[in-house]
Design a protein around this nucleic acid. Sequence first.
DNA 1: CGACTGCCCACAGCATACAAAGTGCCGTGG
DNA 2: CCACGGCACTTTGTATGCTGTGGGCAGTCG
Lengths: 270, 270
Amino acid sequence: MLWAVDQTGVSPEGSWIDPPPHLESTMSLSETQHEAAGARRIARPVPLRESVYNAILDMIVSRNLQPGQHLVESELAVMLGVSRQPVREALQWLKNDGWVDLRPGLGAYVHTPTVEEADQLLAVRRLLETESARLAAQHVTEEGITHLRDLCRQGFAALEAEDVATMVALNAELHATVMRLSRNDVLVELASQVDRRVRWYYTPVARHRGAQSWSEHSALIDAIAAGNADRAAEVMHAHTEHTRVSYLEQQDKSGADAGTPARPVTARQP
Amino acid sequence: MLWAVDQTGVSPEGSWIDPPPHLESTMSLSETQHEAAGARRIARPVPLRESVYNAILDMIVSRNLQPGQHLVESELAVMLGVSRQPVREALQWLKNDGWVDLRPGLGAYVHTPTVEEADQLLAVRRLLETESARLAAQHVTEEGITHLRDLCRQGFAALEAEDVATMVALNAELHATVMRLSRNDVLVELASQVDRRVRWYYTPVARHRGAQSWSEHSALIDAIAAGNADRAAEVMHAHTEHTRVSYLEQQDKSGADAGTPARPVTARQP
DNA sequence: CGACTGCCCACAGCATACAAAGTGCCGTGG
DNA sequence: CCACGGCACTTTGTATGCTGTGGGCAGTCG
C-alpha cells in the first residue's frame, strides 16, 4: 500500500509529504495510555489531510510560504501530490488554528502576524500558563515532579551547549508538562493552540534569555513540588511576563530582523 | 434512519437548509467593523458549508441529534439537500469546535459531554472572563458603558418577564461586550470558542439564578465604569464562579434532567 | 451448542469532474 | 489619453464516482 512513498504516482519529483514526524505534544492522554499498554492499533495510515496539514504548517513556519501569500489549492495539491480535497480540509484546519486567513470565494492567505497580535497572544499565554501552574501545584504527583526536574536538567545542559533548538523544544515540553499536570483538558487544549502560534516567533527570544529562563523554571518546579499554588502561579506569571517583555524588546531593537513578524510591508493582501 | 420526523431522503419537503439566520456572535471584529462602515459586499450567497454547519449545530443543540449518535455523511447530505462535500467540511468545523468527535476511518459522532468536561470548561471560562473584566476596566469607553448599561436594563426586563431565552441571549451579549472591551482579539477568539460550548448547557442554570446574575452584572458594570480593574476582575470572578457552582448543583439535583449532559448512558460509542 | 472464519455491505477517504464567480487584461470608443 | 465594457483565464465552490477498510452477519467446524 505504500503510504509514504510514491502515493499518487504521477509526478516523480517535488516536495513530497514527509512521513509526519509527529512530535506533537498534543497527543491525548488516553492514546498515551493505550500505547503504553501496548495496545497500539498497528499503523493506521495517517489521514492524508493530517499529513497535508503538517506539510503546509512546516512550510509556513519555515517561511517557505511568506505571510500574506495567497495559497492556491490546486498548486498545493500538485506540490504535495494529492488532490484538492485533503488540501481544502487541511486549510480549514489551519484557519481554525490561526495560521491562515480564509476569505470565502477568494481563497487562503498565510496569516500575517502583527506586533499587537503577538503581544495579545503572549498575554493570553501568560494567563493560561499562570492558571496551569496554580492547578499543577494542587494536583502534582511524584512522577510529575521527577519528569519536570529531568526536563529542567536537560534544559540547563542545552543552555550550556548553546543548543537553541533543543532549548526551545525542552521549554515547550516543560510548559506542556506543567499544563497537563493541571488536570484540565480544556485548558490543555486551548494552551496548546496558543503555544503553537507563540512558538512561531518565540525562537529568536530564546537565545537571549536562556539562562534566566531556566532558573525561573527551576523555581517554578520548586513551588509546584511544594504544593504552593499561589507561589507557583506567581512564579509562572513573572516568567511568562518576562518572556513577553523580552519579545517586545527584541521587536523594538530589530524591527526588520529575519524570522520576526511585524513587517506587514512585504505582505500584500490583494 | 428517520431521526426526528420524516426527514430522510425521499420527501421533497422537510428540513432544508434555511437561509442562515446568522445571529452568530462569532463574527470577527473586522467583519463587524466593515459592516459598520457600510462596506458589505452585497449579499454573497453564504458558503454552503456554513449553512450546513449551522443546520447540524442546530440539530445537535436541539437534541434532534443525540449525543454519541453516528453522523453519516451521505444521510446528512441527502437530508439537507446538498452533496457530501460541504457536509464533510462542516463536520471538520464542528470537530474543531468540540461538537462532534471525528474518528478517522469511522466517521463523525456527536460529542458526549461529561460533567468533568463541563466543569473544566466553566473553570476556563471563569479564567478568561475574569481577565476580560480586568482589561475592560482599563480600556473602557463612554459608549461601552452605555451599551453595557443598556443590555443590563434589558436583562432585568427579561428577568421580570421570565423570558429565559432572551435572558440567555442578553447574558451572552453582555459577556461578549465586556470581552470586546478588553481589546485583546486573541482573548475574544478563545472566549467565544469556550462560550459557544458553555452555552449549550447554560440554559437550565439561567432560570435558577437569573436575579442574582443580573445584579452581579450591574455591579460588574459599575466596577468597569469606575475603571477599577481589580474590583471588576473580582466581581467577574465571583460571578462566573457562581455560575459554575450553580451548574454543578443543578447537576447533583437532577442527574437525568432534560437538556443536561452527563448521561453517557444512551450514548453508545461503537 | 459455541466459537471461529469468511463473506458482504456500508461508509469514510480520496480523486476527479463540472459550474460559477471574480479578476485582470485588452480593445475600442469618447 | 483615459475610461468603460467585454472577454478570457484563474480559482474557488460543489457534485459525483471509485476504492479500500471496518464491521456485521451467517455459515461452518470443532
